[in-house]
Simulated assay, not measured.
Amino acid sequence: MKKALLATCALCVGATAGYAGGIDRSGQGINLIFEEGTVVQFRLGYTDPRVSGTLLDANPASPTNGQVVDSGNVTESFFTPHLGFKTSLTEQLDFAIMYDQPFGADLSYSSAYPLSINPLAPTVTNTLNATADTDAITGLFRYKFDNGFSALAGLRVQRVEATVNVPAVRGYNVQTSADTAFGYVVGVAWEKPEIAARVSLTYNSKISHDLSQTETSLSTGTAATNSEIETPQSVNLDFQTGVAPKTLLFGSVRWVDWPQLLYAPPVYTGPLGQANLVDFEDDTFTYTLGLGYQFTDEFSGAVTLGYESKGAEPVSNLGPTNGFWSIGLGGTYSLEKAKISGGVRYTDIGDAVADGGFGQNANFTGNSAWSVGFQVTYQLN
């Protein structure tokens, strides 16, 4: 039971992170390290969010000044890849190496939106938009003690780059060069295989990046500048236990310290003066609870529920969401050496009030996302 259900649970929990707080993408899970023997694993998720809002236009340069303007769907669909290899170095020592994209953003507003209009060139078509990409490789060791406990430790190398365009701030644009930096992962786990029980607690350190960037606006020209940005520290608590024959209860709690993520390029000012380009007031807690059942020797299924509470408002226009709830379904088919999983998740994205500039707030309501994914875990020995 345990082998088949674990693959289903890993997929469902991973899909929850497809549209979580801040710019969370992968959830930084480490379930691969608990696979038996030597395995390779590939997972690919796809999320299609729909996020839109309205804003009373107070931009004096805008042709729709005084009118309520729709943002259009500001979010782009995205993929969340994962690739990993795990092996047992000795009877007590395991090693895994994993690739994922832990954080990311990709959004673009309507060209008619007030913050998409440059007051110094109002007839030029432009959009408020942003892209941010991270790639991470984590090498993780696990040492197993004789009492069911184990210790986890590893190193993470992460690459970050971003581009942001804010036309309402005199045609402001910033484009960073890619920067690579290092962090670490530490944790503990406890297992009791007889009842398929496991609890793991892992800490992901913040990672500080020194970004070289080019900032441009019509009023200041082009300047080569530098900024420091930190991707936030986080803690993952994952648990599972058998509760009845062929039935597994599982879940997770993820905490992310989003206020650590502050981006303040020196040339940037907001529509009303000095401001941070990206910041978050509150940390987030994301909860997942699921139930899995083994229908046959080859097939298992699971249902999951997810929840993230709302934080402070107004939120940033570069992340105009606030909390969510979700429901997901997944299934796993087990072959002799392979486990093939698939799943789907619906997320109801929380309503949000965003800072629309010029003394006005935008209202983002009625938003949602669909996520699908598949995973293949192949046993090499």
Score class of each variant (00 low, 15 high):
Phe78Ile: 04
Val68Met: 14
Val39Trp: 06
Thr64Val: 13
Asn31Ile: 02
Thr75Lys: 12
Val68His: 11
Gly37Phe: 07
Gln28Arg: 06
Val68Phe: 10
Ala61Gly: 10
Leu32Met: 01
Leu44Gln: 14
Gln28Trp: 01
Thr75Trp: 07
Gly72Asn: 06
Ser77Tyr: 08
Asp48Pro: 07
Leu44Lys: 10
Thr38Phe: 03
Gly45Glu: 03
Gly72His: 05
Asp57Val: 06
Arg50Lys: 15
Pro49Leu: 07
Val68Lys: 14
Pro60Arg: 12
Gln28Phe: 00
Arg50Ser: 12
Pro60Lys: 11
Gly45Cys: 08
Gln28His: 03
Asn31Val: 02
Asn59Phe: 08
Ser77Val: 11
Gln41Lys: 11
Asp70Phe: 11
Glu76Met: 14
Arg43Asp: 09
Pro49Asp: 01
Leu55Ser: 05
Ser71Ala: 14
Val74Phe: 09
Gly66His: 10
Thr64Leu: 15
Val69Lys: 06
Arg43Glu: 12
Glu36Asp: 15
Thr38Cys: 04
Pro49His: 08
Thr47Arg: 11
Asn59Pro: 09
Thr54Met: 07
Leu55Met: 05
Val40Thr: 10
Ser52Arg: 11
Glu76Lys: 15
Ala58Ile: 06
Ile33Val: 03
Gly29Ile: 01
Asp48Glu: 14
Leu56Tyr: 14
Thr75Gly: 09
Ala58Pro: 01
Gly45Arg: 02
Val68Glu: 14
Ile30Gln: 00
Ile33Gly: 00
Gly29Ala: 04
Asn65Ile: 08
Leu55His: 02
Tyr46Trp: 12
Asp48Phe: 13
Leu56His: 12
Ser71Phe: 07
Gly66Lys: 04
Ala61Trp: 05
Ile30Arg: 01
Asn73Leu: 13
Glu35Ala: 02
Val39Asn: 07
Ile30Leu: 02
Tyr46Ile: 06
Ala58Asp: 14
Thr64Tyr: 15
Ala61Gln: 04
Thr54Val: 14
Tyr46Leu: 12
Gln28Val: 02
Phe78Gly: 05
Asn65Phe: 14
Gln41Leu: 07
Leu56Ala: 12
Leu32Phe: 02
Glu76Val: 12
Asp57His: 03
Ile33Trp: 00
Phe34Glu: 00
Val39Met: 05
Tyr46Ala: 12
Gly37Thr: 03
Ile33Cys: 04
Pro49Ile: 04
Gly45Phe: 04
Ile30Thr: 03
Ser71Leu: 11
Tyr46Gly: 01
Ser77Pro: 12
Asn65Lys: 15
Phe78Asp: 05
Arg43Val: 07
Ile33Pro: 01
Glu35Pro: 02
Val39Ile: 12
Thr38Tyr: 03
Pro49Asn: 04
Phe42Pro: 00
Val69Glu: 05
Val51Asp: 03
Leu56Cys: 09
Pro60Gly: 08
Thr38Val: 06
Thr47Tyr: 05
